[in-house]
Amino acid sequence: MIFQLLMDKTSTILTRTKSFFAEIGDMTLFAGRFFREVFSPPFEFTELLRQCYNMGNRSLLLVGVTGFILGLVFTLQSRPTLMQFGAQSWMASMVSLSIVREIGPVIIALICAGRIGSGIGAELGSMRVTEQIDAMEVSGTNPFKYLVITRIVATTLMLPLLIIMGDTIALLGSAIVENLKGDVSFLLYFNQVFDALRFSDILPATVKSVFFGFAIGLVGCYKGYNCSKGTVGVGEASNSAVVYISMLLFVIDFIAVFVTDIFF
């Protein structure tokens, strides 16, 4: 009995693992198709600009508010500990380094996975299900170029910008706390921030956020474009897009930290 149960469990786990890796394989092929088609004409510049505008515009407020609260809370929580060691003057450099190098990019990318990634999954999914993608193909427009490439390029370009903006607002939030609680002037605070930050902090973080953007666009498009039939499929596409993106973001982050460690 127990043996039978164990066998059943193992086989379900095995099939799940297999389909997981099959999916990773499909996604790699999808990425391959992206790189094959992205540099060949025709280019859909108008649609690319529209996508960039939409993504930036839709996430601006969310990223701003998240960044602000992040900086505020982070500073408030760290103050007592730093004060115990009499190290309040390190506040600016500690906060700026951790936000710019790690917390800012990861948190903002996760927010954008929920905002942009799931949106792409749902939009392309419903276009697939209602045959709009087929209709595009029939009318002589390559839907992969028009829908997928524009979106992946747009997320890749926009995410670094959103992250830089979010980081800046987070530091502003932190400066406000320091100004109110620690009587540090804004000028002094930002002088300390710029003293602490080096080129080798900003460059890896920006490169990393380019990859974050690519991951969000790629997985969102993959899930939506290959959506299975039916409205259930659309929900499933947008939902699993967020799950996969979140996992992928941490994997990329992990790799990025290793690589950064080697070079800087």
Binding site: E123, S126, M127, T130, E131, Q132, D134, A135, M136
Partner: peptide, 9 residues
Amino acid sequence: FQGSALYDS
């Protein structure tokens, strides 16, 4: 198309 398939955006 059977379901019209208009681009709804």
